[in-house]
Amino acid sequence: MKKLMWLILCFVALPAAAAIDGTQILQKVDRNLEPESYEMYRKLIDIQPDGSKKEYVLYTMKKGRDKIVALFLSPPSDKGRVTLRLGDNMWLYIRDVGRPIRITSLQSVTGSIFNNADILRVDYSAEYNVETAEEQKGALILSLKAKTGEVAYDRLKMWVDKQLLLPVTIEAYAASGLLIKTLHFKDNKDFGGGIKRPAILETDSPLHKGYKSVMLFSAIKKRDFPDEIFTLNYLPRIEELRK
C-alpha cells in the first residue's frame, strides 16, 4: 500500500517539478538585464520613413525595483530635461518651465516609438505577473499580464534565450489585444562587472509603419544611490551626480 502511495505521489509531483517556473525566470531576466541599482548611458535614435534621424542621449540612474530617473544630455534643445519615475508616478522636469509636471507612461517625451514606460522601464517582475511559461524551439516563451491598469502595456509576450536568460523579442499588447509594438534585443555584449546583456534594443510598431526607434546601451555600472535623489526637489541638480 505504501509503495502504491509513493507511486501516486511521484506521478503528481513529477510534472510540477518539471514545469517551468516563469516567475523565477522573469526575475532572472530582470537581474541579467541590469543590476537592481545601476547607472547607464543610452542613445535613442528615431528613424523616420525617409531615413532622417533624431538622436537623444540620456544618463539613467535606477534604485530598487521601481525608482528610476533619466537626464537628457543631448540634443541641446532637450539638454537638462529630467524624467522621474516612482512606481506608477512619472514626472517631467523642463529647466525653463522650472517645475515638474506629471506625465503618463504611454506618452513619449522624445516623440519616438519608445514611450515613457520604455525609457523609464522598471523591473518587468515589478509590473507583470507570469501567466504561462513554455518552451518552444529552444526558447522560453513567457506570457505576462500587467499587475495593475496603470502599466503601459496590458500584456507582454516575451521570448527568452534559454541559455543566457535574456530577452530576445517582446511583443507588447493593449488590453484590446492590439499589438502596440515589438521590441528586438540584439548584440549581446560584456559591459564589465559581470553585466552581459544586449547592447541594442530596436522597436517597431504597426501603429507607426515605416518608423523605427533604436536604443543603444553604454557604460552600465552597478551603483548605489541615496533615496533623496529620486525626489522632485532633486531633479534640477541631478546632473551633479554624474561622475
Partner: peptide, 20 residues
Amino acid sequence: EEYSFDASAFEKKPFELGGY
C-alpha cells in the same frame, strides 16, 4: 556608424555653456 555609441563623449565637464 548607425549604431555606434561612445558614452565617454558625454562626460561631465567642469564648465558648460549652451543656450539658444
